[in-house]
Design a protein around this nucleic acid. Structure first.
Length: 570
DNA sequence: ATGGTAGGCGCG
DNA sequence: AAAGCGCGCCTACCAT
């Protein structure tokens, strides 16, 4: 266990399995990496600390990686809400362990403040990290886990979540190998050459002129939705917003160039040259990942937009010379997870060894893959209208167990209840105001408008809980996948770093490492002669994750996997 | 000037 | 208004 001691020192406390203290040492923070490395090599312990985001980057910067940890902050957030926890003790009260997930300012200067205790993100947002409070929190958590309804399952979740905390820090340290020249080429092709600051790229200027001509309005601003909307109305285009999906329903010479302008504008403002200058350095894009940042357990990102990189920029993701990108994504992760959770034999069979949507077509439920996809998404999201509304009832007949699971989750949510993922993450309880509004809308004096609002709000919540169990369990599968993969990659031998690969820092320039994660997709950056081994590790880890979560289930999780030098747009 | 919100759009 | 989930980020806009 690591915690802060008096005078800025770090206390390292070794605990036995029964919680008794074996040994305690106090060290200056500069001495921490070497001591931790020594103990890691000797014992492979589970490191307990307040917050991996606070402790681990400095160890990584010193070249130290760890196998396992227990992240008190992330674990607390799960235990605090989990319905599996029957003896929560003080865990459900608001404490410093429930602080916001992310630092106020994304930290992109890991080197500068590496050994500056007060600059640590935890200090900034108040996670307690003194050794005694760290120890006390661990005791509370262990006791809550031991008393839980299904401690084995919960422990899987907590271990996976903590592994995710290690992985997120490692991803940021390693960075994504990013080809600035290719990025610039894509921008230049789409927008024209990089303009001087404060001016628009040439091709955007030209397209904007086309739009203004077609609208018969030489000065209208295309970047202000209200002004643009009025100009559209003046030109006889009857839209209620300026969004692309509404615009494309209309016939007018201004529409096509306007949609083109919007695409260009989006690319420039979200991932243009300014983004490149801010987020890419030394051939690495280093976004900030926020494990557990989404209520369902998915990761979020903070700064750099790691989870929103547009597909058209994917070719800028390029392996170092002599290295490869091994990319893999899971086909239809969420419906497969649902099939396994609900033991729906028909749905498991539809996806067995092939594309699940095609399997649904072959089962005779719908005529086309597109229908199958829209229907399944409607089932997961609670769609009631249009194409998905038409298909969902048929899915309900063919896949009764799967549909009963999500329908049940929706019904629970509508009643104000909480739902729980496969491994034990529960949805937050509704706000007291929500419960009150539902109660009063059901009372005898409720106005019809109030009733309608309350019903809509109940249905909204039902769609949230419906999706929560599936999205959350899929996130658990993905964490388990990455956790297994990380350990397998660590078994691959180190190689001699070349000059360019040094950009990954002292640890990851010498070995295959995770470089990117996006909900159901990973990219490993590996030396070329280890690419096949890395691919095998990715596959084995996916199988392992399936067996870990759903032992004995015939469910499979097929991957699309490629080994390339440059990421494909797809 | 600063801060919060909404529109819009990128990702799964 | 994307028919139906979860996010983050940019800009314009309006309140303070």
């Amino acid at each position: 266990m690591l915690g802060r001691g008096a005078g800025g020192a770090v206390v390292l406390r070794e605990l036995a399995a029964d919680g008794s203290v074996l040994e305690e040492r106090t060290r200056a923070v500069q001495e921490l990496p070497s001591l931790v490395a020594e103990l890691e090599a000797a014992h492979r312990p589970r490191w307990v600390w307040s917050d991996a985001a606070a402790w681990y980057p400095r160890l990584l910067a010193a070249g130290v990686t760890l196998e396992r940890c227990h992240d008190l902050r992330l674990v607390h957030r799960i235990l605090r809400h989990s319905d599996l926890v029957t003896e929560p003790g003080p865990l459900r009260e608001a404490t410093g362990w429930d602080t916001p997930l992310e630092p106020e300012e994304p930290r992109r200067d890991l080197g500068a403040t590496l050994f500056d205790l007060d600059a640590r993100p935890s200090a900034a947002h108040g996670v307690p990290d003194g050794i005694e409070e760290t120890c006390a929190e661990l005791e509370r958590q262990l006791s809550a886990i031991a008393g839980a309804e299904d401690p084995t399952r919960l422990r899987l979740l907590l271990a996976a979540e903590s592994a995710g905390a290690l992985i997120a820090a490692e991803l940021q340290t390693a960075g994504i190998p990013w080809d600035v020249a290719e990025h610039d080429r894509i921008l230049t092709e789409a927008l024209g050459p990089r303009p001087s600051p404060g001016t628009l790229p040439a091709q955007m200027v030209q397209v904007a002129a086309e739009v203004r001509t077609a609208l018969g309005d030489p000065t209208v601003s295309l970047d202000s939705p209200p002004k643009l909307l009025r100009a559209l109305h003046r030109a006889g285009i009857d839209v209620s917003s300026t969004s692309q999906w509404e615009l494309q329903e209309h016939e007018h010479p201004a529409i096509e160039p306007l949609l083109r302008y919007k695409k260009m504008s989006r690319l420039l403002t979200a991932n243009g040259w300014a983004w490149m200058d801010e987020w890419v350095s030394e051939g690495r894009y280093r976004p900030v990942y926020v494990p557990g940042g989404v209520v369902t357990g998915r990761w979020a990102s903070s700064g750099g937009g790691a989870l929103q990189i547009p597909r058209r920029l994917r070719p800028a993701l390029r392996a170092d010379p002599g290295w490869r990108l091994v990319s893999a994504d899971v086909s239809q992760l969420e419906p497969r997870v649902l099939a396994a959770m609900s033991h729906d034999g028909e749905m498991i069979a539809a996806g067995a060894g092939k594309d699940l949507y095609s399997g649904i077509v072959e089962a005779g439920v719908v005529a086309s893959r597109q229908e199958a996809k829209v229907g399944v998404l409607g089932a997961l999201y609670g769609g009631t209208t249009g194409d998905s509304g038409r298909v969902v009832p048929r899915l309900r007949r063919t896949f009764p167990e799967a549909m009963a699971l999500v329908d049940g989750a929706a019904a629970t949510g509508e009643r104000g209840g909480t739902v729980t993922t496969w491994l034990g993450r529960s949805s937050p309880a509704p706000e007291p105001g929500w419960v009150q509004a539902q109660r009063s809308a059901n009372g005898p004096e409720a106005a019809s408008g109030e009733q309608e609002r309350a019903r809509r709000s109940a249905r909204d919540r039902g769609r949230f809980t419906r999706n929560f169990v599936v999205q959350g369990t899929a996130a658990e599968w993905a964490l388990s996948w990455m956790a297994a993969l990380r350990l397998r990659l660590a078994q691959l031998p180190e190689v001699a770093p070349d000059e360019r690969a040094d950009a990954s820092g002292p640890v990851f320039s010498r070995r295959a490492h995770l470089a990117f994660f996006l909900h159901d997709e990973v990219i490993v950056h590996a030396p070329a002669d280890q690419a096949e081994a890395a691919a095998a590790a990715i596959r084995e880890s996916a199988d392992a994750a399936g067996r870990l979560l759903f032992p004995g289930s015939p469910i499979d999780f097929p991957l699309d996997l490629t080994i390339t030098e440059r990421s494909a747009e797809k």
